[in-house]
Amino acid sequence: MTEPGAVKLTAEDRATAEEGRSSVPLLGAINNWFFAPVDARAYAAFRIGYAAATACVLLDLWRLRHTLIGHASMIDNAGGHWVRAPINCFLWVQSSPTGVSLLLGIALLACLLLGLGIGVRLSALVLWVYQVSLGAAVLPAYSGFDAVLRVLAIVVLISPTSSVWTVRARDGERPPTKLPRYGLRLIQWQFLLIYTSTVWLKAPDIFWRSGEAVAYFSMSMFARIPGAHLANWPAVYTFLTWSTLIVEAAIPWLMWKRSTRLLGLVLGLSLHFGISLMSKIGLFAVVMAPMYMAFLEARDFEAISAWLSKSAGLWRRFRISRRDGPNADTD
């Protein structure tokens, strides 16, 4: 009997799995690690999240577009000698402010189409060109959230696609529910690298070690309301500093195992939500959130769906009871 929410294997999937059982066990394991069938909703959730995050960053950039891009801007968009981008579409429009706006408009349109699932491959290609170009063009004004979107752009481009959660999906049509896992694996690995690398780089710093980093951050220009409010609470800022390091170190490992995934999801999203609340770098949370979707499995989607149905039911009952009064049920 199939477990509720589990992915049902077709003959084709079984053939794929058989193919994976190579005479060399290691090769078989690697093959399975990359190509085992997974729920297409994980790809769909990531695609929509990536499109939304890119649109948010793009809208944030919009007001500074002529300050950062073009011959009259503050930056030489040809890029430094240490970034050899394969393409830089901003060089095509440097002399035209309208051209700069048009390019950003095209990227924004690509976000919309990618989110809706229309022309996914072409939209992803446009966004890859845009992200790589931006990486070269605005280097001195580049942010960590730009980098996250850039390194994920190629994964969006080469990941398998389906009609799940797109405007192409028709009511009643049973969408293909399984896709090979390789795209999600690349995202998961990148996710692991981001968190591990940032902890590796932070841990030797004297302020992170002494537990004072969050106190300094809360007084800095990156804080939403810079002030000395934490300065007199050493226990609080030390706890926040060290727990940030511990959580960042733990998240990728917690997300990897199904039994600890919910904890990883809650800790990770809480960390980013907390940073967004305290600071002006909320866009970082927006670009990191879609990566969490890459870890979700069929059972997770079923659980979320059940929870949403239950919440909607409770909300409906609450509204009916408010409309009809407390004795509505007894009538």
Partner: peptide, 22 residues
Amino acid sequence: LAGLGLWQRWNMFTTVPYFHHL
């Protein structure tokens, strides 16, 4: 890495910010 736009270094806030206002 250069050809696919994959260069990366995740050194955000690896030490504390130095300024309160700019």
